[in-house]
Nucleic acid binder design. Sequence first.
DNA 1: TAACATGGTGGCACAGTACCACTAAGAAAT
DNA 2: ATTTCTTAGTGGTACTGTGCCACCATGTTA
Lengths: 225, 225
Amino acid sequence: MDLAIFSVVEDALRVLLVRRPDAHEEPFPGQWALPGGFIDLRVDQDLESCALRKLKEKAGISAPYLEQVGSWGGASRDPRGWSATHVYFALMASDDVSLVPGGNASDVKWANVDGNRIREKLAFDHTEILKAAITRLRNKVEYTSLPAFLMPAEFTLSELQHVYEITLDRSLEKKAFRTRVLATDLLEEVPRRRAGANRPAQLFKLRNRKHLVYFSRALTSGGRQ
Amino acid sequence: MDLAIFSVVEDALRVLLVRRPDAHEEPFPGQWALPGGFIDLRVDQDLESCALRKLKEKAGISAPYLEQVGSWGGASRDPRGWSATHVYFALMASDDVSLVPGGNASDVKWANVDGNRIREKLAFDHTEILKAAITRLRNKVEYTSLPAFLMPAEFTLSELQHVYEITLDRSLEKKAFRTRVLATDLLEEVPRRRAGANRPAQLFKLRNRKHLVYFSRALTSGGRQ
DNA sequence: TAACATGGTGGCACAGTACCACTAAGAAAT
DNA sequence: ATTTCTTAGTGGTACTGTGCCACCATGTTA
């Protein structure tokens, strides 16, 4: 079981990494890896509850967006022999990030996603797994409301667009974005505005914290470069 | 490892089933199930080669469209205890169907997909797994060229549309379908026509037997009822 | 040669997006 | 108090791909 836990922190898409134990009998000692671990047959009813348990242990969150990416198995991915892992990706709201890391700070970190990879070299086949997770995320953001699960409880339309732009790594056209989002029942106005050194912006919240909205088309090219 | 092998036979979407062995120490004796089996750690380099091997054994085909659907694991899916399986779905060209079944004819059959289920009651959690595979297939057909992998080497546009309609279980509008397909580089004309009791139809083949085309929108409602 | 059946197209309406200029509303600077 | 600045939010037209449907095309069969 391995997890790709994403969040948007400081205007960047990030993924949670943990450091492998430094014991010499362990494979890839001291290297960065995706959080995960073995299934506990006495505790975990099924794969999803195992993923939820790991998520709570590593990131301290209990009700994130969770989706299976797939499974990887083979003879060469672990030096100890044939192995298989089930991979999930999770999305964390940015205001829950402060709760992380739950363990020793030096052994957990958020790594920046650049393009469709990260700078760190990962243990096992985690580089390939992470690439698949990022690709899945990006593709799905094109035609769903996935980035909504990366938002805090209340947010403005511009903030939501900004998170879309960060996860897609390209700019979007403002009017098209707004029309498209407001045409669905994704959002609900709250009677508050975000103040700043400019015109205050309407705040919204999700109408349903669990529901994923599908758009009928993808947005193509984007606004200001 | 379990496989949902689809094909379109006699104007219907079908999935390949195998009968469980009748020995009493086996779970679900004599019941229908998705083809599959255990990974052979000496032979299978990774999950995909295991799926390809099973596919060759059960259906006698060697280069189909193959895609991972996900994995299922839990304490209650097998009476023998905690277990997990990796699930792939495969698409077979209709003219390869004659090669099936490879084993005893009475132990293998094509089952009709009705709605998003089949009539047969399946062993283990295979009913749920198959439902997920059918849903994945249907969803993806909306915006990709997946049904092209269900076609014989040469086919007409009407035949392709017909296979789309069978997999989607609804009718499509002729002009919209043609315009959309021909706007991509999916097909290539061959210098032959399909004769019949009517105007002969242009035959096409896939420009690339492996490449999957993505459309920018889904088709909505369809033509003649 | 007329009837029939399916192949294939022309043309207009419509929905959702692309584009871009414009107005709106607040804080900060003058 | 007025101007400047910055981001919020909108109006309006063009464009693309689809929905719709009538119509023509081209073969076989009666």
